[in-house]
Design a protein around this nucleic acid. Structure first.
Lengths: 187, 187
DNA sequence: GATAAAAGTGACAGGTCTGTATATATGCAA
DNA sequence: TTGCATATATACAGACCTGTCACTTTTATC
């Protein structure tokens, strides 16, 4: 894969997060990435295509990072779900955290028919299913229910952090998650 | 107050929610409101001014509706906070619910220096303080902590509903809220 | 060094955006 | 009737947007 394609992808990811997707023009992206529109449009047919690749890469990076953290720290299923919010906290409080792409994208493209909105919705659903798998492996009875609740706390905490950097909301999300997880495991 | 100003305000509120703020031009707003740009710019000096008035009105309407519901249903503080998510559910599942303005606005204007972002952040904080007041009246020890947790559930549920209408996330948010509230009251 | 692929340049088409200018019409009060 | 505020219609300036064009330069491979 061309390194210029990566450069464009990374630059776009950054600009979309810090300035908004609709507010970031392709001219700005190529200027900062140090390339030209011709090159951008060779790798991504449209701006929408670029947005979709940015969202996919962001989600893949997050998912890969989290899955790796969880699996290298413990093999015991109930420990894994209990540690989930420790790693989410690590992710959110990292200096390079700029927000979750799919949360912002769904707000910028509110129409449910829009491909970008649909992708956002799919990513949110897939993350919830990932948590649900963790929960069912830990023998939680209503795994989908707990997963949904934890994903609400997660998305709420991300939202809070996007509104005000260093809000500390994640600390309380973690406490709430512990209460809900303990309650569900002992049910 | 001019009824045309209200018409513009209501039309803009609707369009911002259904199409996004940046994706909605003033030409579209005046065309649908049945007036002209001259009139719009007489009432709102800039588009930013219009956005800010839309956000303020939306938040005021929500707050007024919720406060009224809570106060007419019960005078017992611990009942009020326990009923909070019942009314939030009523609000979110109402057919006319199109999302929360301040959540979408903060995503479209991610820069913390931006006046619109700052207003969103302020509205989120004020809502949290409102819940905190409910909690402390119900003799919750860590009222701010519980309020933050409930607001995470609230914003997460709104986010989920904005992503997929009829997601049913609010039902599980409600259950989680009950667990957290009961735990906090009996602490 | 020849050849081909990749990237760069600069201009441009066609559209949208915010905000303004000018000139006209309407309703109401004195 | 006259005067005035309000709203209308229409055109426009200037900036930005996405995406394309023809053409040139660099880079890599044989």
């Amino acid at each position: 894969m061309s390194s210029l394609k990566d450069k464009i992808l990374n630059t776009a990811t950054d600009l979309f997060q810090t300035r908004g997707i609709n507010s970031t023009g392709v001219d700005t992206i190529v200027a900062i990435a140090g390339t030209t529109k011709m090159t951008l449009y060779k790798h991504f047919h449209t701006k929408e295509g670029l947005i979709i690749e940015v969202l996919n890469k962001s989600q893949h990076d997050f998912h890969h990072w989290l899955d790796n953290k969880l699996n290298t720290n413990s093999k015991v299923p109930s420990d894994k779900i209990k540690q989930l919010f420790d790693f989410i906290e690590e992710w959110i409080t990292s200096p390079k955290f700029l927000g979750m792409g799919f949360i912002k994208a769904s707000a910028e493209f509110p129409n449910e028919e829009n491909p970008i909105h649909q992708l956002s919705s799919k990513q949110s659903r897939e993350f919830r299913q990932y948590i649900s798998k963790l929960a069912s492996e830990a023998n939680v009875k209503d795994a989908d229910g707990l997963a949904l609740q934890l994903s609400l706390l997660f998305e709420g905490a991300v939202q809070a952090e996007q509104m005000k950097r260093g809000s500390g909301a994640i600390k309380y999300a973690k406490k709430a998650a512990k209460i809900l997880i303990d309650g569900a495991i002992n049910a």
